[in-house]
């Protein structure tokens, strides 16, 4: 995608998506309370009550976009983390020593939407004799760094999206999972549902936050800040079909170059989980990178759980009714 950073200020700043008639009417009613000076507690309260019910018309679907992260070329520079924080105006996590290699942010959170992971795979025994050519390859596998820039997976069938009771989490026109911060009420259902541990609730406002895949930049034709900043092109951004093709070619290339363990994680749907619009090229088991080996969508169990729940209640009601009818005078 062409980068037009310099033209950003010249672009017309897109506002909220266009709204339906009812929403337009409601919007006119409360606009003075939202944008002008406060007129007192009652109008402000009215504005707060009506505002969440303003539903916009969804924008026209665009070509699905996403990330393909090639972990084999990540150098752990954290430029993506910094760019993400800078663009999205996220607060610092402090200068903490985690004790886990060069990782100082530890995890994805409401204030860290990109997280670079450092995995040190080093044998503690130093070889006493020079290694033979046969053993060099196996030792290089044992003595290596794995680095991975992690973020929201933007799952096609996202459990957080399915769980969200307020409609704050949407799949936007680029088929990315997006949290509308002005709608989220911090119920935490998305946190419980996410099998990757991506989302947390902010301590500041009490709302959930995560990677937006730079929705604002995409709407202005710009690539996400992390992909723009990545100096090794470990983070690729673009139309998802093109990314998948590119990633498969890269896996083939790695296999030819003697890295047979390279594979893609999340590019295609599995038996228990959908494909992801942010997928990864890995060279070790997913759990080594802190990813679930076999992600499972909890919604696959839901209907059965409802059946058992209703059965448990109906059985009790049946017992009560039988006893009442048998013993009543």
């Amino acid at each position: 995608m062409a980068s037009r950073e310099q033209e950003l200020s010249a672009l017309p700043q897109a506002s909220d998506p266009p709204r339906g008639r009812l929403s337009v009417l409601l919007g006119r009613l409360i606009r003075p309370y939202l944008h002008d000076e406060p007129h007192g507690p009652l109008p402000e309260l009215l504005g707060r009550l009506i505002y969440p019910f303003l539903h916009g018309e969804p924008p026209k679907p665009q070509q699905p976009t996403g990330f393909y992260t090639d972990t084999t070329v990540c150098i752990g520079c954290k430029a993506c983390e910094v760019a993400c924080k800078q663009w999205n105006q996220l607060p610092s996590d402090g200068f903490n020593w985690s004790g886990n290699s060069y990782d100082n942010t530890n995890e994805l959170s409401a204030t860290t939407w990109r997280h670079v992971k450092f995995i040190e795979q080093f044998s503690h025994e130093s070889p006493s004799v020079p290694a033979s050519p046969d053993t060099e390859e196996s030792e290089s596998l044992l003595n290596r760094w794995l680095m991975m820039s992690d973020n929201c997976k933007h799952c096609v069938a996202a459990p957080c999206h399915q769980a969200c009771p307020t409609g704050a989490i949407i799949q936007n026109e680029f088929q990315n999972i997006y949290i509308q911060a002005d709608i989220c009420n911090g119920c935490s259902c998305c946190i419980a549902a996410c099998p990757f541990g991506v989302i947390t609730r902010s301590e500041l406002g009490g709302h959930s936050h995560k990677c937006t895949l730079c929705y604002d930049r995409q709407r202005d034709g710009l690539e996400p800040a992390c992909a723009k900043a990545c100096p090794t092109q470990s983070i690729h951004f673009g139309p998802i079909d093109e990314l998948r093709e590119q990633a498969r070619k890269r896996v083939e290339q790695l296999h030819e170059r003697g890295v047979p363990q390279a594979y893609l994680y999340g590019d295609v749907p599995g038996e228990t989980y959908s494909e992801m619009h942010s997928f990864y090229l890995l060279v070790d088991r997913p759990s080594v990178y802190g990813l679930p080996d076999a992600p499972f969508n909890p919604w696959l169990h839901m209907m059965g759980d409802y059946v058992r729940s209703v059965a448990g209640g109906l059985a009790a009601i049946a017992v009560l009714l039988v006893v009442v009818f048998l013993l009543k005078p």
């Binding site: 886990n100 995995i119 935490s188 080594v288």
Partner: peptide, 13 residues
């Protein structure tokens, strides 16, 4: 140290 033995999911508050 590492990520393999740590919890993957986040606990809802």
């Amino acid at each position: 140290v590492g990520y393999e033995n740590g919890p993957v999911t986040k606990v809802p508050g």
